[in-house]
Nucleic acid binder design. Structure first.
Lengths: 104, 104
DNA sequence: TTATTATATGAATATATGCTCATATATGTT
DNA sequence: AACATATATGAGCATATATTCATATAATAA
């Protein structure tokens, strides 16, 4: 009797959580735009809002989201906070996807 | 006077849409589990439901979602539909993310 | 044709998400 | 201290999403 005895290895809860969280961060157009801009240059909050025509509050909320996932970091200069990318691997995923979207 | 004259190139609407849709597909634990399973082997709907302990209806709804984005395809064998991966690039993104999640 | 099995679908519901408004906090300046 | 500027935060709202239930459809067998 022929049978396939190989048991499928489920993804563990923690991996599933991290992976879904990561992709969730990249699933919103506003966050993609912010990450893409920060991929070009370090920016403060109002620069991001101006460049992308978003409300300061919107940017701040999304930056908190991205900061919680450690995808961005910031440095302070007086009252101004300069944000930049803190996870090159996630930026690689984003850039791959952008490249793919444009080339087929 | 020193000035940075380089203008930031915004992502165009269409790219933004495709990229966000792609990542949205990968942002849900149920869809991740289904794609990961299909990455191992072609499966029919009830196999997926059994293997992942999901309702048949849940699986079917999510498969429709994935099929609309052309991430999966199917072949018919009688009343049974065998689903499989139809976008290797997206699977690469998923596998990279899984690998990354596990290794740091 | 009727029955059976596999899958798909629509409606309803509960939850999550993103944005905006108003306001709070934090730093720096006068 | 009082004020100005930059950013953060909480509440409210509208929309999106995932799941479940009940039922429809499709292919096949008897």
């Amino acid at each position: 009797m022929i049978e396939n005895n190989e048991k499928y290895e489920q993804l563990d809860e923690e991996t599933l959580f991290i992976v879904s969280q990561t992709f969730k961060a990249l699933s919103d157009p506003t966050r993609i735009r912010i990450l893409h801009l920060l991929g070009e240059k370090e920016c403060n909050v109002s620069e991001i809002a101006d460049e992308l025509s978003l409300m300061q509050s919107t940017v701040s909320h999304q930056l908190r989201f991205l900061k919680n996932l450690r995808l961005v970091k910031f440095r302070r200069a007086g009252t101004t906070l300069f944000y930049s990318i803190d996870d090159e691997h996630v930026m690689t995923l984003l850039n791959q996807s952008i490249h793919h979207a444009r080339h087929d």
